[in-house]
């Protein structure tokens, strides 16, 4: 199907994520996977697989160094996202990112969407008419934002304890170690189960939604999934502005490969984690 030119089957494709967003997701994904694989063994250090995983990265010293390399990647990711937000806000005066239909900021609508969505789950109503970002996508976004602060902040403290100890009391390292581990556990299990399900693995999307890699989706799908956004775009005359060529077969194939690897690694790690947690 994907090999067909858009004209061939009449599919119109529209852009959802630009190159910057897609690059950021790739970088976030790679650094998050790297951080998980080098960090999670410590949380389950009594399991044989933890030692094997750590040895795979060359032992605990080498794994610790790689953890910091991936952390740097994630910091770059976070920093460039903040920089872009600043540019959009102060440079382009795009105040719409702060509030309104295309903003990621939680709004009353999200609560009504959630209630309506649950009613739909139970067969007691229509599917909510979602806008550009659904409430669970906003949760994903803010969860990562919160996680950046908590895990990133505690991680930076643990990175150079002797330096920080010049200013901070030592018992703060105990707190940093605790929240770093617990919050990381939350992030790992959440991303590799809930985010994977919501974004990729649920039957409507299975095996994955490639929009985050290709950046584009068929207009029909947008209309079905985010009718409120579709209506707004039509009203604003933005559909034509967002129209894009269909993704090339090569890009779709690469997206699937990258996506499959990431999802497989994540599921494998979360399987080990859940077995360790529940046994």
């Amino acid at each position: 199907m994907t090999e067909k030119a858009p004209e061939a089957d009449g599919t119109i494709w529209v852009r959802r994520f630009d190159r910057f967003d897609r690059s950021l997701h790739i970088l976030l994904m790679a650094s998050f996977l790297g951080l998980s694989l080098t960090g999670v063994p410590l949380l389950f250090s009594d399991r044989p697989w933890a030692a094997s995983l750590s040895r795979l990265f060359g032992g605990f010293r080498s794994a610790a160094t790689l953890h910091r390399v991936f952390a740097t990647g994630m910091l770059v990711c976070f920093g460039s996202h903040l920089a872009r937000l600043a540019k959009r806000l102060f440079g382009d005066k795009e105040y719409g990112i702060l509030w309104g239909p295309s903003s990621l900021v939680p709004q009353p609508r999200d609560l009504t969407d959630l209630v309506q969505h649950v009613r739909w789950f139970l067969g007691r109503g229509e599917r909510p008419r979602f806008e550009r970002f659904t409430y669970w996508e906003k949760f994903d976004y803010w969860a990562v934002f919160w996680g950046m602060g908590i895990i990133g902040g505690s991680g930076l403290i643990l990175w150079a304890p002797k330096l920080w100890a010049r200013f901070l009391p030592g018992d703060l390292f105990n707190v940093a170690l605790l929240v770093h581990g617990e919050e990381a556990l939350l992030a790992v299990v959440f991303i590799f189960t809930i985010h994977f399900f919501n974004g990729h693995l649920r039957p409507e999307k299975f095996p994955m939604d490639t929009v985050i890699f290709t950046g584009v989706l068929p207009l029909e799908e947008l209309k079905h999934e985010r009718p409120a956004e579709y209506d707004r775009l039509v009203a604003e005359g933005g559909v034509e502005r967002l129209a894009s060529p269909a993704p090339t077969a090569d890009r779709v194939r690469k997206s699937r490969i990258v996506g499959t690897i990431a999802v497989s690694l994540g599921l494998l790690l979360v399987a080990f984690t859940l077995i360790a947690l529940l046994s």
């Binding site: 002797k162 100890a165 009391p169 030592g170 018992d171 390292f173 105990n174």
Partner: peptide, 11 residues
């Protein structure tokens, strides 16, 4: 430093 040694290794 002295602060560093306030870390509790058996927290």
């Amino acid at each position: 430093t002295a602060n560093f040694s306030r870390y509790d290794p058996h927290a």
